[in-house]
Simulated assay, not measured.
Amino acid sequence: MSETILGFNKSNVILAAGIAGAAFLGYCIYFDHKRINAPDYKEKIRQKRRAQAGTAGVAARRPAAAGNGEAVPDFNDAAQMQRFFLQEVQIGEELMNAGNVEEGAVHIANAIMLCGDSQQLLSIFQQTLSEEQFRAVVQQLPSTRERLADMFGQKADAAENEPPLVQYLGDGPPPAQIQELIDDTDDLE
């Protein structure tokens, strides 16, 4: 067996590796000490924990939108309802972009049902979402109405007695799901 590694004495290579390891460990200890003793260290830690708690809070609010009986915003507080609406749109879009179309459709349908002008919002989503995603949203609308009525109690039914109006803006005849919604909302006779 050879006593050299790449032309260097084996004991010298081991000594150099030991010195490099000790220098790296010293470097880590020095900068950790410097970081901990920084004047804004505790504030940075608090901010990081708040940010993590905020991210966990959004994840914890997702089941509430799905109707698991968790805390929901106060129906009478417009600011809370607006935040809930925007949160539902954001979560729905994020889930759809991640490929989770069904769960994203639930959140988008929640937003549509909470919107004051649901027909306009539905037409916006028709233009911005793919056909598959839009079809999934339309399929969620009837069950979403019931789920939101359960979440918000009788106040949701009193606030919106009519189902959303649907206007098809595409070329040719509308898909069957949209035609059913159009036929269901046409109570002019």
Rank of each mutant, 00 (worst) to 15 (best):
L121I: 08
N9K: 11
I19V: 15
R50W: 00
F84A: 13
L148R: 00
L114E: 03
D117A: 13
R35S: 13
Q127G: 11
R145E: 12
A60H: 08
E102P: 00
N12S: 12
R135K: 14
I108H: 03
L122G: 11
M151A: 15
S118H: 03
K42Q: 12
P142L: 08
I108P: 00
A53L: 09
F152H: 06
T128G: 13
D32I: 07
I108S: 03
E93L: 04
L95N: 04
C115E: 10
A51R: 05
R62E: 03
Q82I: 08
G116F: 10
I29S: 13
I29C: 07
Q80L: 12
E132V: 12
M81L: 12
Q140C: 09
R135W: 02
Q82D: 07
A23C: 14
R147P: 04
E94C: 04
F75T: 04
E131R: 15
L121E: 11
A111D: 02
G54E: 07
A60S: 05
Q133L: 05
A20R: 01
A149G: 15
E102Q: 05
E102L: 06
P39H: 07
R135S: 12
S11W: 05
Q140E: 12
L86N: 07
N97F: 04
V72W: 10
N9H: 04
P73G: 13
Q119E: 13
L121A: 04
A53W: 01
F84Y: 11
P73Q: 14
Q82R: 14
G99W: 03
L86D: 06
R50Y: 03
E103T: 09
N76Q: 13
N100S: 02
L122V: 04
A78Q: 14
I45W: 03
A38Q: 08
G116M: 06
A136N: 06
R50S: 13
V138L: 14
K48F: 02
R147F: 03
L148T: 00
L121T: 11
L122N: 05
R147M: 11
R135L: 08
Q140A: 15
Y30M: 11
V106H: 08
T128W: 07
T55I: 15
A38N: 09
S143R: 11
N9M: 13
A38L: 07
A109M: 12
A56N: 11
R135V: 05
V72M: 11
F125G: 01
G57R: 09
R49Q: 15
V106L: 15
P39V: 07
Q139Y: 06
Q90Y: 00
E70C: 07
K44C: 09
P63T: 02
G67R: 03
R145A: 05
G99P: 00
A149L: 05
E131W: 08
Y30P: 00
G18T: 15
R50F: 02
R49V: 15
Q52Y: 05
Q127N: 10
K34V: 14
I91L: 14
